[in-house]
Structures are given as structure tokens and as C-alpha cells.
Simulated scan of single mutants.
Amino acid sequence: IRKKNADKLENAQVSMLLFYHMLAIVFVQIFIFSGNWALAKNINFYNVRPPLDPTPFPNSFKCFTCENVVDNYNCNRWAEDKWCPQNTRYCLTVHHFTSYGRSTSVTKKCASRDECRFVGCHHHRDTGHTECVSCCEGMICNVEIPTNHTNAVFAVMHSQRISDGSRWTVNIPLLASVIIILLL
């Protein structure tokens, strides 16, 4: 009887272990593939990390770049991922919008200091549109669009810029998989 009870207990433990293992696999798969189910509007443009590829020259940087795109979201979403030329130092954003605040055109690009001297907002009476221009210094710093005099500015960093290519990042699905495997 003891042997029979021990066999039943062992079978139950094996079944429970298999159940937990399958549950862990399902959890990991759902976690990994859940990113594909999210709507594209949930993209976090603030969490953009510089690429690990070598920079073309010291203090190189990238900006969101687009030309006459209908709104900020589409500009950031489809922006080219390329290094700015060596003769530039800033990211420029030009935003055209109606008197109701609806965007009509967004242009973002790498810029020199000369191109950044026209920051601010200017209302065009003949068309009724407003144009706001901003410049910023730093890696992909032109996430937002200028909409008024408080954010249509020339923002520069006062500290020395350094490349942060050795920064560690965590791959959440991989970390979750390792933890679950270790628990089993």
C-alpha cells in the first residue's frame, strides 16, 4: 500500500511539474508575442536608445527626420534612422498648424546653428496658419513638436556630450524566460 501511495504521490508531483512547465511556456509566449498585439499608437518615442553600431565621427548624433509629413506621430514613426552630417549639431523641427491647433505639416531634420536662429512661433495672417520652429541638442531630442512660444525654443545642453555605447539594456522577454526556467 505504501508503494502504491508513493507511486501516486510521485505521479501527482510529475503531473504538477509538467503543468507548471507548460504554464510557464504559455506565459512566456504570451509575454513575447503580446507586443505584436499592441496598437501602433502605443509606441514610446521617448525610450529610443542609440544604436550599438559605431558612430561615424566623435559626438555624432541622430534626429527624427521627415519632410512635410501630416503630423508628429507619422513623422516619428517613419523617420529615417541615419546619422546627422558632421557639419550639423542640432535637431530642427518646423510645425505648421491651423488656428484650431490641427497639424498641417511637420518637418524634422539635422541642422546647423544658422538654421536654428529662427526659433519661435510666427502667425501668417494671409493663410491663418501658424509656424513654430524649435531646435534642440542631443541624441533624438526632437520627439515633440513646438506649438507655442514656451516650447518653440533653442534648447542646448550645457554639459559635455559623450557617447554611451556601452550602456546595458535588459531584454524583458529573455529575462522572464531565464527566470521561469530557473524556477522549474
Results as ranks from 00 to 15, higher is better:
residue 4 K to M: 13
residue 4 K to P: 03
residue 5 N to W: 02
residue 5 N to R: 10
residue 7 D to A: 12
residue 11 N to H: 07
residue 12 A to D: 07
residue 12 A to R: 09
residue 13 Q to D: 08
residue 15 S to I: 08
residue 15 S to Y: 05
residue 16 M to L: 11
residue 17 L to H: 11
residue 18 L to I: 15
residue 19 F to H: 08
residue 19 F to G: 07
residue 21 H to S: 15
residue 23 L to N: 00
residue 25 I to Q: 06
residue 25 I to L: 10
residue 26 V to K: 07
residue 27 F to E: 09
residue 30 I to D: 12
residue 31 F to Q: 14
residue 32 I to W: 10
residue 32 I to M: 08
residue 35 G to Q: 01
residue 38 A to K: 15
residue 38 A to C: 11
residue 40 A to Q: 06
residue 40 A to V: 09
residue 41 K to L: 09
residue 44 N to T: 09
residue 49 R to G: 08
residue 51 P to A: 11
residue 51 P to V: 11
residue 52 L to C: 12
residue 54 P to E: 10
residue 55 T to K: 05
residue 56 P to L: 05
residue 57 F to H: 09
residue 58 P to M: 01
residue 59 N to K: 02
residue 59 N to H: 05
residue 60 S to R: 03
residue 60 S to N: 05
residue 61 F to A: 02
residue 62 K to M: 11
residue 63 C to R: 02
residue 64 F to C: 04
residue 65 T to R: 13
residue 65 T to P: 04
residue 66 C to G: 04
residue 66 C to M: 02
residue 66 C to F: 02
residue 68 N to D: 15
residue 73 Y to K: 10
residue 74 N to T: 13
residue 76 N to W: 00
residue 77 R to C: 03
residue 79 A to W: 03
residue 79 A to G: 10
residue 80 E to I: 09
residue 83 W to R: 06
residue 83 W to G: 04
residue 84 C to Y: 03
residue 88 T to R: 01
residue 89 R to Q: 06
residue 90 Y to D: 01
residue 92 L to V: 07
residue 92 L to S: 06
residue 92 L to F: 10
residue 93 T to N: 04
residue 93 T to Y: 00
residue 95 H to D: 05
residue 95 H to L: 01
residue 96 H to G: 04
residue 97 F to Q: 04
residue 98 T to N: 07
residue 99 S to R: 11
residue 99 S to Y: 02
residue 99 S to M: 08
residue 100 Y to D: 14
residue 101 G to L: 01
residue 102 R to A: 13
residue 103 S to I: 03
residue 104 T to P: 01
residue 105 S to E: 01
residue 105 S to P: 05
residue 105 S to D: 03
residue 111 A to M: 02
residue 112 S to F: 02
residue 113 R to H: 06
residue 113 R to A: 12
residue 114 D to S: 02
residue 115 E to I: 00
residue 115 E to N: 04
residue 119 V to D: 09
residue 122 H to I: 13
residue 122 H to T: 15
residue 126 D to S: 15
residue 126 D to E: 15
residue 128 G to H: 08
residue 130 T to K: 05
residue 131 E to S: 13
residue 133 V to C: 01
residue 135 C to A: 03
residue 135 C to Q: 00
residue 135 C to W: 00
residue 135 C to M: 03
residue 138 G to S: 10
residue 140 I to P: 02
residue 140 I to S: 15
residue 140 I to R: 15
residue 141 C to W: 01
residue 144 E to V: 07
residue 144 E to D: 13
residue 145 I to G: 02
residue 146 P to K: 00
residue 146 P to E: 00
residue 147 T to V: 11
residue 148 N to P: 04
residue 149 H to G: 09
residue 150 T to N: 13
residue 150 T to W: 06
residue 151 N to R: 12
residue 151 N to M: 10
residue 154 F to K: 11
residue 154 F to Y: 12
residue 159 S to F: 10
residue 161 R to D: 08
residue 163 S to Y: 02
residue 163 S to R: 04
residue 164 D to Y: 09
residue 164 D to G: 12
residue 165 G to A: 09
residue 170 V to H: 09
residue 170 V to T: 12
residue 170 V to E: 11
residue 171 N to G: 05
residue 172 I to G: 11
residue 175 L to I: 11
residue 177 S to W: 14
residue 178 V to R: 07
residue 178 V to N: 02
residue 179 I to M: 14
residue 181 I to W: 10
residue 184 L to H: 09
